[in-house]
C-alpha cells in the first residue's frame, strides 16, 4: 500500500488519475440515480409542451436574466405554499431545457404566476414596474415592446428541443413560424390548426395589446401567463398534507 502510494505520487499521471477517480466517484454516485429518477417522478399525462411563442418568450426570459432575481421553485414549506401556491413538482419542469429554478428571490417566485394577472398588468409592469408597484427594484423592459419578434427560425428551435427529448410533432415543427405569429395575432388566421396542435386550453390573443405587430413583449407575456399551467398534476396531489414536518418549525 505504502509503496504504491509513493509510486503514485512519483508518477504525475497516476496521480492525476487518482484525483479524477476520487472526485468523479462522488459525483457519479450522487448523480447517477437521478437519471433513473423518471421512474419516481409523478406522472402527468396531460402535460403539454411550450408553444413556439411561449418558447420564444422563455428565451427572452433567459436572455434578460430574469432568473437572476426570480425563482421558479416553490419549496415544500408552509409559508411558501401560502404565499405562492402549491409547491413545485418535479414533473412540472420536465420540458424545461434548461431549468429556471433560480437561486435568489430579489423578486417573488414565479412558478405559479400564470393567470394571476391580466395581460395589461404584465405589459404595464414590464414597461415600468414602479408604475404598478412603487417600491419595486425591478428594471423596466421598454425595449420588449419596441422589438419585433424574430420567429423565422422557430422550426430549428423546436427541432433542437425535440433532439433533447421534448415531444414536438412534425406538424408542430413545420408550422412553428406561423404558429408563433398566429398565436399573438388571432385574427390573422396565420395559425390554422394551432389549437389542434397545442390543446384547446392554450391561449391565443393580442398579449401586448398592439394589433399591428408581434413583439418580444407578446412572447414574454404569453410565457408568463402559462407558468405553472402546463399540467394539472399539482392540483391532483394533496397540497398541505405533503408538507414536510420541518415546515412547521418554519412558522413563527
Amino acid at each position: 500500500m505504502l509503496k504504491n502510494h509513493a509510486k503514485l505520487e512519483r508518477t504525475a499521471i497516476g496521480f492525476a488519475f487518482a484525483i479524477m477517480l476520487v472526485a468523479s466517484i462522488g459525483g457519479f454516485i450522487e448523480i447517477a440515480p437521478l437519471f433513473t429518477i423518471s421512474e419516481t417522478v409523478e406522472d402527468a399525462p396531460d402535460m403539454r409542451v411550450y408553444t413556439p411563442l411561449e418558447l420564444a418568450g422563455r428565451n427572452i426570459y433567459v436572455r434578460e436574466g430574469c432568473y437572476a432575481c426570480h425563482s421558479q421553485m416553490v419549496r415544500t414549506l408552509q409559508d411558501e405554499v401560502e404565499r405562492y401556491g402549491h409547491y413545485s413538482l418535479a414533473v412540472e419542469s420536465k420540458y424545461d431545457h434548461p431549468m429556471l429554478w433560480g437561486s435568489k428571490r430579489t423578486g417573488p417566485d414565479l412558478a405559479r404566476l400564470g393567470d394571476k394577472y391580466s395581460d395589461e398588468w404584465h405589459v404595464a409592469h414590464l414597461l415600468n414596474p414602479r408604475a404598478v408597484s412603487p417600491q419595486s427594484v425591478m428594471p423596466a423592459y421598454r425595449w420588449l415592446l419596441r422589438n419585433e419578434l424574430k420567429a423565422n427560425d422557430m422550426p430549428l428551435h423546436l427541432r433542437a428541443m425535440r433532439k433533447v427529448g421534448v415531444p414536438y410533432t412534425d406538424a408542430m415543427i413545420a408550422n412553428a413560424t406561423a404558429d408563433t405569429y398566429g398565436q399573438a395575432n388571432p385574427d390573422s388566421g396565420a395559425a390554422d390548426g394551432f389549437f389542434e396542435r397545442y390543446g384547446f386550453d392554450s391561449n391565443s390573443r393580442y398579449f401586448d395589446g398592439d394589433k399591428r405587430k408581434v413583439t418580444e413583449m407578446d412572447a414574454l407575456v404569453a410565457y408568463l401567463q402559462i407558468l405553472g399551467e402546463l399540467t394539472d398534476a399539482a392540483d391532483q396531489t394533496a397540497g398541505a398534507a405533503n408538507l414536510e414536518n420541518d415546515a412547521e418549525g418554519a412558522t413563527q
Binding site: 419542469s93 424545461d96 431545457h97 434548461p98 431549468m99 433533447v164 427529448g165
Partner: peptide, 16 residues
C-alpha cells in the same frame, strides 16, 4: 442552444 437535460436532472447537474 438547449441544455441536454431538463428539470430535476438539469438542476442537480447545475448545482453539482
Amino acid at each position: 442552444s438547449y441544455s441536454l437535460f431538463s428539470g430535476v436532472q438539469d438542476a442537480m447537474l447545475q448545482w453539482w
